[in-house]
Each structure stands twice: as structure tokens, then as C-alpha cells.
Amino acid sequence: MTVASLFGWPNAAGEPAGDAIEIVGVPSDSGNSIASGARFGPDAIRRASLVLRPDANGIDRGDIGDVHDGDWQDVLERVENAVNAIVRRGSRPVLLGGDHAISYAAVAALRECRPLNILWFDAHTDFCAWPNAHWHNHKQVLRRIAGLDHVARIVQVGHRGITYFDEASRFDRMTVVTARAAREAPAETILEHLPRDEPVYMSIDIDAVDPRWAPGTGHPVPGGLSVARLRRLARVVADNREVVGLDMMEVNPLLDDRDRTSAAAAAILAELVPALMRRSHH
């Protein structure tokens, strides 16, 4: 049950909004292979956001119901329908996760945006091979998204650590910007990978942030971005490209330390929603 709304925005169900940000929580753990607890992420982010007042209008539609312990195929379908409804109302969808596998439903719902580019902040490429992974799994969700007809380029930012392969070369339309490169290069260079006139879906796995600032996530990897750096990079894209949807995933309050991770997630969203509003008015 939702206990608060994001940024204290009004809770509303059903009535049309238009020209606003619409929030949907997806308290899911079913695509999570590492650690349980991301299902508590949406409420934790909402609680942490209550001290923030971004310059934007929004409506919090609450959570998709009966997600936990539900049939994930049904959950994906309902998420897709919810995102579709938001887009039809002329609003911008912002999803609060939940495990990262849910992002597939949001991207799938945006099939009218063609070509759609994906900006994926994550410590991992989420491009695991099919064997040993079920169809619905946060470790290979980006591989599934890459297979959607309307998806063009994928820019993955924040990759780092120790892997079994050179994952940067797994897909010819994917550009991997390692965490180190993302820290050292000027923020504006991220725009080079995203054509000016093509819409972008932005997905943020909170594990892109260094675990010193965001320890509350299932698979933390040291050496990540600072919150400020991620905000800066995301803001540059939101200011200069049409971001048609956004999600914040993998916040796991059960693994958090004094709510630092949910606070970081809320701060990043507060940075981005005004830019999403402005671009939607263009």
C-alpha cells in the first residue's frame, strides 16, 4: 500500500491530467536474481522525496497492484497498459521500481516513439546471455529491450567492475560508457551518442551510483558515479533531448544505510522532472 506520494504531489486515480509528470510505482522483485527487497523501493523513494520540492507538476498514480507474488507476465502487461494510458493523456511516465526487469514493459509501451533511444545508467550491462537466465530477469533485460522493433541506439553509462566477458561489444547498436569514462569526460559528450531529434527513454539503476552513496541495492559494485555526477549527466540529456519516459530502479531499502539510497534516488528524480516538464512543452 502506498504511504506517501512522490514530492508530496497529489495522489489521483483515473482523471486525466495532461502536461504533467505521472508517477507509477512497480513494487516488483520477480525479476530480481540477487537480493530480495526492491519491492519496497517505490515507497522508500516516495518517503525520501517528501523533503524535496522540484519545480514541476506531477501526479502520483500509486502502485501497480498485486505485483509481489503475482504472475510477472500479467504484471508486465499491466505496467505497459499504465504507461500507455499516461502517454495517451499527454503526460510523461516516471516509474519507481522495483527490479530493473520491469523497464522492459515501459519501453515496450512507447512503441509509438520510433526510433527510440535508450539511456541506461547501470553498473552492469544487463546483457546476459539467454542460457541460465529466465526470460524475465534484470540481468538480461537490456538484451530483451534491444530486440524491440522501435528501439534504435542504446547508451549504457556506469559499467564497471569485474566481468566474465568484454560486455561492451555484445551489441553493435550499444555504446558502453564506463563509470571511469563517465566521470572523466565532459558531461556534454554523452549527447554525442544520442541523435538530437530522436526521443530518449532514460532508465536509472541506482547501482550506477557508487555504493558509498547508494549502498541499498542488490548488487553494488565499487567505483561508481557520485550522485552529483549522475545528476549532471542525466540533466544534460534531459535538457537537450526529448526524454519520453524515465524510471528509477533497484532501490532496496532492506539493504540501505539510513535511507541514503532512497534519498539519492529522490534527489536524482528531483533534478530531472523539471527538465522533463520543460521538454514536454516544446
Binding site: I162, T163, Y164, F165, D166, E167
Partner: peptide
């Protein structure tokens, strides 16, 4: 042994 790939150092 396959070893590992160090993403940061490539």
C-alpha cells in the same frame, strides 16, 4: 581458467 575482464582498465 578463463580469468576475468577488468572493465575499468579494459
Amino acid at each position: 581458467p578463463r580469468g576475468w575482464f577488468d572493465v575499468n582498465r579494459g
